[in-house]
Simulated scan of single mutants.
Amino acid sequence: MTQPFTSDDRLSNALLLSGQGKGAEDSVGQLSNLPDTEQPAIVHPNFDPNQTPIDPARPLQDIPEPARRTNSQLRRLYGKSVHFSQPNEHSLSKWRLIGSEALAEHLALLSAAKLMTLPDSFYHNYSDQPLSSSLESLTLLDMADIQRAIGHYPTLNRYGFVVSESKVNARAHKLQKTIYSHDPDELLSSIYADDWQVVLQPQQFETGEGSLATDIMACSVAVHVLKQCQTRKSINHSYSAAQICEYVRSYLLSQLSIAPMHRNQYRQIRLFAGHIIVAAYHLGWSIQVGADEECHFNLSSRCGLLTRYANMPDYHINGWSS
Rank of each mutant, 00 (worst) to 15 (best):
residue 122 F to K: 10
residue 227 K to L: 03
residue 78 Y to F: 15
residue 83 H to T: 11
residue 94 K to D: 08
residue 190 S to D: 12
residue 42 I to Y: 12
residue 160 G to F: 06
residue 316 H to K: 04
residue 305 L to P: 09
residue 121 S to K: 09
residue 12 S to G: 07
residue 150 I to K: 14
residue 50 N to Q: 11
residue 60 L to Y: 03
residue 6 T to A: 12
residue 188 L to K: 06
residue 263 R to A: 15
residue 286 S to P: 05
residue 40 P to W: 01
residue 129 Q to Y: 01
residue 217 M to Y: 12
residue 19 G to Q: 08
residue 26 D to L: 13
residue 178 T to L: 12
residue 33 N to Y: 05
residue 106 H to S: 06
residue 6 T to E: 09
residue 256 L to M: 13
residue 135 L to Q: 02
residue 221 V to L: 05
residue 189 S to C: 04
residue 318 N to R: 11
residue 11 L to K: 01
residue 9 D to A: 09
residue 255 Q to V: 06
residue 199 V to E: 05
residue 196 W to V: 00
residue 295 C to F: 13
residue 165 E to F: 08
residue 236 N to E: 08
residue 96 R to M: 14
residue 97 L to C: 10
residue 199 V to R: 03
residue 208 G to N: 11
residue 206 E to P: 03
residue 153 Y to F: 11
residue 189 S to P: 00
residue 86 Q to T: 07
residue 141 L to D: 15
residue 96 R to G: 07
residue 249 R to M: 07
residue 54 I to C: 00
residue 183 D to G: 02
residue 103 L to V: 04
residue 206 E to I: 02
residue 2 T to H: 06
residue 211 S to C: 06
residue 233 K to I: 13
residue 193 A to S: 15
residue 177 K to V: 12
residue 254 S to F: 04
residue 70 T to N: 08
residue 55 D to S: 07
residue 196 W to C: 01
residue 168 V to H: 14
residue 259 A to N: 15
residue 271 L to C: 07
residue 258 I to N: 11
residue 310 A to P: 09
residue 23 G to F: 11
residue 139 T to W: 06
residue 22 K to Y: 07
residue 80 K to R: 13
residue 145 D to S: 10
residue 308 R to A: 14
residue 261 M to G: 11
residue 159 Y to T: 09
residue 96 R to W: 04
residue 287 I to N: 05
residue 118 L to G: 06
residue 65 E to F: 05
residue 185 D to G: 02
residue 299 L to I: 15
residue 256 L to N: 10
residue 242 A to S: 06
residue 304 G to D: 10
residue 228 Q to R: 02
residue 223 V to H: 04
residue 172 A to S: 13
residue 97 L to A: 12
residue 317 I to D: 12
residue 77 L to Q: 06
residue 309 Y to A: 13
